[in-house]
Amino acid sequence: MKITQSKDKAEMIRSVKHFLMQYAIYLVLVAIIVTIVILEPSILSVRNATFILQQAAPKLIIALGLAGLILLGGTDLSAGRMVGIAGVICASLLQKPDYALRIFKTMAPLPIIVPLLIAIGVCVFFAMMHSMLISFFQIAPFIASLGMQMIVYGVMSLYFDGVNNSSPIGGFDTRFTKIAQGSIQMGSFRLPWIVIYALVITFFFWVLWYRTTLGRNMYAVGGNKEAAIVSGVNTKRVIILVYILAGVAYALAGFLDAGRTGSATNGLGEGYELDAIASCVVGGVSLRGGVGRISGVVTGVLIFQVLSYCLVYMDINPYIQFIIKGMIIIFATVVDTQKYIKKR
């Protein structure tokens, strides 16, 4: 009798431990946010919620693209610059016809889809090159993406410098700003269109991850590449497709983020990849590959955005903000790694 009791107790302790392990990062972040709200109750407003969602939307799109690469067991440091190049291209091609500093003065106004498609084309081109490095040459994703980051930044800066002498590109076509900045008024709540786009894209990725062969194969390649190969999965093709999808996501995010902020420089997108990777890790997408959920990515992005917004709102020293975010990333990774460490 006594033995079974102690066994039950051990079982209970184990399941509590498991629960804490699984949700540790959420618990910590929620605790931080609750503390902030207690310290600064004025933060709880519809206005702030709208801002947070608006800022989170492009980051969610980036994170969804990048999460696929992490799921494959890789990472992507070039994501931010890819967003940047897409943003700069769209910005340069979507200025008001009567804007004094218009870059292409004689060009007729383009249909809005054309610059977007050009941006997607450029990003897909870079993503394909990137995926070749990973699939055919089997370079470590960290290094491959570091190199791609610099190349994309260089190309973007050359273009930026060449067309606009390194001054910020502004004066966007109203059609463009409407798409990126517009919103639907719902009573006292303003729902930005950009949030709706992000939700549609999230749904697209949800279907792709869970309901298609590519999605399942992505989990397989990330979980055990050898097993995927001997089961006849064309792993190279899977890798290339996932990179292309990420490229498309980056292009969409760049298009929206440039439109949202109303101007673009070659600094656009700097550091976005780090926020996106951090959000994925916080959301439980394992850096070891093969494990992760869309709901996790969404939660991760939201929590991270709420936290960033709160820190700015409370006017915390930006350097301290860096320290806090760095600690959260490390904590999330520690928890993630503990889950998969082989206990002996």
């Binding site: 279907v207 309901r211 298609t212 062969t213 399942r216 194969n217 989990y219 397989a220 979980g223 055990n224 050898e226 097993a227 995927a228 001997v230 089961s231 006849g232 999965v233 093969g290 494990v291």
Partner: peptide
């Protein structure tokens, strides 16, 4: 194979049909 090649984080049927998932149109 002698050394089993499986994807530990996925379920049994995902492992069995890996590489030839039955589909309905675009979806599994």
């Amino acid at each position: 194979q002698q050394e089993l090649e499986q994807i530990p984080q996925r379920n049994v049927m995902d492992n069995i049909w890996l590489g030839r998932y039955p589909r309905k149109g675009l979806f599994i």
